[in-house]
C-alpha cells in the first residue's frame, strides 16, 4: 500500500463526467480530495491523495490519462515571507493541517511538510506574502 498525491487537470469536455467513482470501484483506491475546482464546461483542477496497491494506483492513473485528464505528481511548494509577516494569525484560521501555526511567542511558523496546498491561506493573508507554486 502506498499514499501518493496528484494534481489532475480536466479538459472542458471532461468536467461533466464522474471519475472518482471508477477509481474507487474498479481500482479499489481510497481517495482523499484535497482540493477541487470543477465547473461544467470549464477547465477544472483537482488535487487528490490516492491510497492503495501500487499497481492499482498505476492502472487508475492510466484510466484517467485515457480520458484526457492530465495527471501530475503533486510537487507544489508553499513559502511565507517571514521578513514581512506581522504575525496577525489570520492564516492559522483557515489552515486545517497546522502547516501555519502560532508558536509560543505568538509568531507564525510554517511547517511546509504539513501543507496540502489547499491555497486558502494565499487569499486570506492580508499582506499577500504566502505563495504557493505548482
Amino acid at each position: 500500500m502506498e499514499i501518493v498525491r496528484f494534481v489532475l487537470d480536466f479538459p472542458k469536455e471532461r468536467t461533466g463526467k464522474p471519475v472518482v467513482y471508477q477509481l474507487v470501484k474498479d481500482y479499489g483506491l481510497i481517495i482523499n480530495i484535497l482540493k477541487a475546482r470543477i465547473t461544467p464546461e470549464e477547465e477544472g483542477r483537482m488535487v487528490i491523495e490516492l491510497n492503495g496497491e501500487k499497481n492499482n494506483i498505476e492502472s487508475g492513473l492510466n484510466f484517467l490519462a485515457e480520458l484526457g485528464i492530465s495527471v501530475k505528481a503533486l510537487s507544489g511548494k508553499i513559502t511565507l515571507n517571514t521578513e514581512e509577516c506581522v504575525h496577525c494569525g489570520l492564516c492559522t484560521g483557515v489552515c486545517r493541517t497546522g502547516a501555519l501555526s502560532l508558536n509560543s511567542e505568538c509568531k507564525i511558523t510554517l511547517f511546509a511538510e504539513k501543507c496540502t496546498l489547499c491555497e486558502l491561506c494565499v487569499g486570506t493573508c492580508p499582506l499577500r506574502i504566502i505563495k504557493i507554486e505548482f
Partner: peptide, 13 residues
C-alpha cells in the same frame, strides 16, 4: 472549533 486572531499579539507585545 479552531480559533485564530486577526490582531497580532506579537506586535502588540
Amino acid at each position: 472549533i479552531p480559533t485564530a486572531p486577526i490582531s497580532s499579539i506579537y506586535k502588540a507585545r
